[in-house]
Simulated scan of single mutants.
Amino acid sequence: MSEHFSPAELDNRLEALESRIAYQEHWLDSLDQATAQQERRLAHLEQLSSMMSERLREQHQALQDADTTAAPNTEGFNPQDEVPPHY
């Protein structure tokens, strides 16, 4: 069954379609911008994570080096007996 539309109805339908397309284009542009921003943020966070991992490795190595060069514990001293700094 073929539908017959008046020119005014066709104009209205065309305007509605154009409006929907414009809205979808705007929405896609917004999503594209959000995706690009997230990619930049992710790259920055990955860089920070890498830097922090490297810093932790360096600190761990420094602690190991300090432990090997430190004098042995005196007899009777147990580090677990010390009061934590927050007390």
Rank of each mutant, 00 (worst) to 15 (best):
L63M: 13
Y87W: 13
S49V: 07
M1F: 05
G76K: 00
T35Q: 15
P7F: 03
H4Q: 11
E18F: 05
L31D: 13
Q38W: 12
Q33G: 02
R41L: 14
M51L: 14
R13K: 14
P84G: 11
M51E: 13
A16L: 09
P85C: 02
I21M: 04
E46P: 10
M52Q: 09
A70N: 07
T35H: 14
A16C: 11
A16T: 11
T68M: 07
R20L: 09
S50F: 11
R41Q: 13
W27G: 01
D65T: 01
S30V: 07
E9D: 08
E46W: 10
H26T: 14
E15Q: 08
Q33N: 07
P79N: 01
E58W: 08
S49H: 15
H26R: 15
Q47C: 14
L56N: 08
Q61W: 04
L17F: 05
D67K: 03
E25V: 13
E54K: 14
Q80K: 09
A70D: 01
E54N: 15
A16V: 06
D11H: 07
L14T: 00
R13G: 05
E25N: 08
Q24F: 00
L56F: 09
H44M: 06
Q38L: 13
R20Y: 01
T69E: 05
T74H: 03
A66M: 05
Q37C: 04
E82N: 11
R40S: 10
M51C: 11
Q33S: 12
L56A: 12
M1N: 09
L56S: 13
S53V: 06
H4M: 04
E15W: 03
E3V: 07
E3N: 03
R13V: 05
D67T: 00
L42S: 11
W27L: 10
T74A: 02
N78D: 12
M52V: 06
S49Y: 10
E15S: 08
R57S: 05
E9F: 02
L31W: 01
S19K: 15
Q59T: 05
S2W: 08
D29S: 04
S2T: 10
R57P: 03
A70H: 01
H44W: 13
D11V: 02
E25H: 06
P84R: 03
N12A: 09
E9C: 13
R41S: 06
S19F: 02
W27S: 14
E18L: 08
E25A: 07
S6T: 02
D32F: 06
Y23C: 14
G76E: 02
D81I: 04
P7E: 02
R20N: 06
P7S: 12
L14F: 10
R55Q: 12
L56Q: 11
Q61A: 13
H60Q: 09
T68I: 10
S53Y: 06
A66W: 06
A22L: 08
A8Y: 02
P85H: 00
H86V: 11
D65P: 04
H60K: 04
Q59V: 04
A62R: 12
S2C: 14
P72R: 03
E58R: 11
G76Y: 00
S50E: 12
L28T: 04
S30W: 02
H26Q: 15
E39L: 08
E75S: 05
M1V: 14
E15M: 06
N78T: 01
T69H: 06
V83T: 10
M51I: 07
P7L: 01
E3M: 11
N78R: 09
M52P: 00
R55H: 12
H44E: 14
